[in-house]
């Protein structure tokens, strides 16, 4: 490990992509640097020698509306997102999620792309204890102190998804614009995250040299309701114990187009399928919510110390539906 880093300034994203691809793990994009600095200090993860500050390549910190989409530069800070009235108007779950990130210092410093690509907070991994995520071949959390770990989709890793804005972007069906050495492509944000069963060592599919340039969101029309909610141990400045991003609309008097994702409970944003199927297309009615909420933790496989997340998941699912239900422009009860 080298520390401090070398900073390189490159003329274009394309050039940066090529440089990083050439150097493989030895170079990386520098967003807000919070993750990079953390790991450089703790030595718990490999840190690159060369950093390429994304905000110095091109204007990367912007929020604009074009072609009927909201386009957010990858280097936009979480604080700027939280403050954006445009986002609040047509993508408010993202606003709510941005406000729930860390503290105001953390929000000012972190970039949206950096946040999406943050590594798990798992305390074995973050303390450099050998595990699947740092070259090892065990998961000490599986049998250790797993109070903060996954209850769904775990194994071989039990880390949990902790990006609050990431969860909201999944529910908003956001698209990422990726620059790579050989061009540009788009990709749904829901495809960004790796199935841990395929590869437990990493969380996202981007290869070295693939850079997130922009995040695009289709604005929600006023038929939609939605929210982002988060339970944390410490009120303020804490990662989610369980979080939820929920969006749906009223389609001829029915729950429709429901997108619901849970955070803090699985290695990736988790879709509670059973509960979702239970309520999708049902006639609007408050009474539909509790039976669905009861199914929200269906399939949970808690570890020794984290069964407490099960009632939380059910409660949060129910509360998110109840809160949004009240906001529907038409409701039968």
């Amino acid at each position: 490990m080298t520390y401090p880093f070398k900073i390189e300034r490159l003329a274009s994203l394309q050039a940066a992509a090529r440089r990083i691809a050439d150097l493989q793990g030895r170079a990386a994009i520098l967003g807000g640097g919070l993750e990079l600095l953390d790991f450089a200090r703790s030595g718990a993860d490999q840190t690159p020698e060369i950093l390429i500050p994304i905000r110095q390549i091109a204007p990367m910190s912007y929020i604009e509306t074009r072609s009927g989409e909201i386009r957010i530069g990858a280097g936009t800070s979480i604080a700027e997102i939280a403050d954006s009235t445009g986002i609040r108007r047509v993508a408010w779950p993202l606003t709510e999620s941005a406000n729930a990130v860390g503290s105001s210092q953390i929000r000012s410093q972190s970039t949206l792309a950096g946040n999406l690509l943050q590594r798990p907070r798992c305390w074995y991994f973050r303390n450099g204890i050998s595990c699947f995520k740092n070259g090892g071949n065990t998961c000490p959390a599986a049998t250790g102190d797993n109070r903060y770990h996954a209850i769904f989709g775990g194994g071989p890793t039990y880390s949990v998804f902790q990006s609050d804005p990431g969860l909201a972007l999944c529910a908003l069906q956001a698209t990422l614009v990726i620059v790579s050495p050989d061009g540009e492509r788009t990709m749904p944000v829901t495809d960004l995250y790796v199935d841990p069963k395929q590869d437990a060592s990493r969380e996202h599919v981007l290869k070295p040299g693939e850079i997130i340039r922009e995040i695009r969101i289709t604005p929600l029309t006023d038929r939609y309701v939605g929210t982002f909610m988060k339970i944390r141990e410490r009120s303020g400045f804490d990662f989610a114990t369980v979080s939820i991003a929920l969006i749906y609309n009223n389609f001829h008097g029915r729950f429709k187009d429901i997108r619901v994702y849970l955070g803090g409970v699985a290695p990736r944003p988790y879709v509670p399928e059973k509960a979702l199927n239970q309520i999708q297309y049902k006639k609007l009615g408050r009474g539909e919510i509790p039976p669905a909420a009861d199914l929200a933790a269906e399939g949970a496989a808690p570890l020794e110390h984290n069964a407490y997340k099960i009632p939380m998941v059910k409660r949060l699912f129910r509360e998110a539906f109840e809160v949004t239900y009240e906001k529907l422009s038409w409701r039968p009860d």
């Binding site: 907070r121 305390w123 074995y124 000490p140 049998t143 250790g144 102190d145 410490r234 400045f237 990662f239």
Partner: peptide, 25 residues
């Protein structure tokens, strides 16, 4: 402050994971 039974190591030697009260508490 958590010391891991298996590895004997402190698991939260930092202010993100060892949670002091904030003003909101």
């Amino acid at each position: 402050r958590v010391f891991d039974g298996g590895t004997g190591r402190p698991l939260n030697p930092n202010f993100a994971d060892y949670k002091l009260p904030t003003i909101q508490v």
